[in-house]
């Protein structure tokens, strides 16, 4: 945006006019510019300060702390360079955590996309009671992650209600150690996360669907297309941008997932290397084991992976979808 913006000159002319009515001392162009800058600085400073201080500055500190071995008391003195990073990648439990993040990331996309798309198309049809069903479908999304975690933990506990229902249906053979069979746990977690977050995808998809003009689907229907053909060839392709933005948000969320795993998996399970993610590993080691330098190195790894993934996704997949909403690039 340059200074030759027509709206700007309009506003300037208006300013000149009102200035003519009030012959005060602040009528010069310089005074008006100064005043404009006071307003800009005054109104944005609180937001800039809070945001910089509590979002960006800590990330800088993480890089600094990550280069030290430090118990968190007094200033860090024992400089170890890249050692914490090497240690992290050498730890099989951290590598498992990375792998689990990858499972959650890919699994969320693979399972949630068809489910959410199907439900969104269903709830986009016009029928009486639709608003009520939408409300129910969104419920898991608004519940706190902790509540959801405890709820599923109680439901999935050994000989709990899920097992009881399976047995009652004659499917007793399917009963598993949902939360104790180490290789299985991450899939249980993926199920819980899908249950929790699919509502979010549905909300976004319904928003995208409401933007598709009725004329397009009506035209297809007049041309003799079936409901399914309309969805397949008109609606879903037009939903592309929304789907890609959801993929982006889901990806960032998957990389930092913490709450549900923390609440559902017992600490003993995590220490055995199951049900960890980068975030739970970081909290276990940095905060609870007081390996602050090491924990901060994990934080930086998590940050770099997310940032690189976000930039790559944005460059190669989102491109013009968001029209600069996330980077400001026009």
């Amino acid at each position: 945006m340059t200074t030759t913006n027509p709206t700007q000159s309009l506003a300037d002319r208006a300013g000149v006019r009102s200035a003519r009515l009030r012959p005060a001392g602040n009528t010069t162009r310089a005074a008006r510019t100064r005043r404009k800058w006071y307003e800009i600085v005054g109104l944005t400073t609180p937001a800039v300060v809070v945001y910089t201080m509590f979002v960006l500055v800590p990330m800088g500190f993480a890089v600094y702390y990550s280069l030290y071995r430090w118990k968190g008391v007094g200033p860090p003195t024992e400089f170890v360079g890249w050692r914490n990073y090497l240690l992290a990648f050498e730890d099989p439990i951290f590598r498992d955590a990375l792998w689990n993040n990858a499972i959650i990331l890919v699994g969320s996309l693979v399972f949630q996309l068809p489910i959410a798309l199907g439900i969104a198309l269903l709830l986009n049809r016009r029928f009486r009671g639709r608003a009520f069903f939408r409300l129910l479908v969104f419920v898991p999304y608004v519940l706190a992650e902790v509540t959801v975690g405890i709820m599923w933990k109680l439901v999935l506990i050994r000989d709990g209600s899920v097992d009881a229902i399976l047995k009652a249906l004659g499917l007793g053979g399917l009963v598993q150690g949902w939360l104790s069979d180490l290789p299985l746990i991450i899939w249980t977690m993926l199920f819980i996360l899908t249950w929790k977050y699919v509502g979010f995808a549905i909300i976004l998809f319904l928003a995208g669907l409401s933007n598709i003009p009725d004329e397009l689907t009506e035209a297809a229907s007049i041309d003799g297309a079936s409901w399914w053909q309309i969805q397949r060839h008109v609606t879903i392709p037009l939903l592309g941008p929304t789907i890609r933005i959801w993929m982006f948000l889901s990806m960032i969320g998957s990389l930092q997932v913490f709450d549900v795993l923390w609440v559902v998996a017992a600490p003993s399970v995590r220490s055995l290397g199951a049900a960890n993610t980068m975030a739970t590993y970081m909290v276990d080691n940095g905060f609870f084991a007081r390996l602050w330098g090491y924990g901060n190195a994990v934080a930086v790894i998590l940050f770099v992976i997310s940032f690189v993934a976000a930039l790559l996704f944005q460059r190669f997949v989102l491109r013009r979808d968001i029209q600069g909403a996330l980077t400001g690039a026009k």
Binding site: A62, Q256, L302
Partner: peptide, 9 residues
């Protein structure tokens, strides 16, 4: 673009 949770420590 990046998870706020990463900077918790």
């Amino acid at each position: 673009l990046f998870p706020a949770g990463a900077a918790i420590l």
